[in-house]
Amino acid sequence: MLYIIGKKIIEMTQMLKGIVNLFFGVFYWVVVGPFKSKTAHREDISSQMLFVGVKSVVIVFAVTVFTGMVLAMQMAYLLQKMGSILYVASLVSVSLCRELSPVLTALVVAGKSGSAIAAELGTMKVSEQIEALEVMAINPVRFLAVPRFLALLFMLPCLTVLGDFFGILGGYVVGVGSLGISHDLYLQTSFKYLELKDIYTGIIKAFAFGVIIALVACYEGLNTKGGAKGVGNATTKSVVESFILIILADCVLTAIFYFSNY
């Protein structure tokens, strides 16, 4: 038992060390690379942005719009008892922008794009494509990890802002369509208590989640061992580790914002 726990701790430490090393590698190529005229290819960055961003809009819409609706109904259940059903709008908008939209969007993207990145890089690893890049003196971190990192770093906040909008729309549909709140009043109440800091704390979280998803997916992909089973393991590990780290980072960031009055 002790042996298994010890082994798991060693594995986890190695994984975290590997992720930190990958972060420094990516950071080097993003910051120092351009001065050495060695950067990631622009077309790779834009194709990754298309994949992780534009192609995730529909699924983010589906998740956040229904979450907004569910949130409105659950809040209505409680607020009806207090006679303040109007505040459904504020609760939906604030809780979505501060918490639910960044986290749900990140979980959706980790499941959809993070797993695809880990599987793609893992397949490249087991079919010697990564080794081929190294033998051609092409750094795999610069060539493969940097475009994916930048795409997630910029597209996850964009998707989060869209998620905020879609979620508020979901709440609006329930509030106006079912709870009998007027159109104008719903929108006015939605934005009355929603401050700019509620939106940008959500966006800061999205940046952090983008970094986590990209690093975990690239790390697991680039360190895949074995054949098809190894690729499967890397994909699963990438999703599980991303989910855990996203929730952990969310807790830490929320605590920081809360205790510093943000």
Binding site: M124, S127, E128, Q129, E131, A132, L133
Partner: peptide, 8 residues
């Protein structure tokens, strides 16, 4: 490479 290792 034995299995070509072309970037697919």
């Amino acid at each position: 490479f034995q299995y070509s290792a072309l970037l697919d």
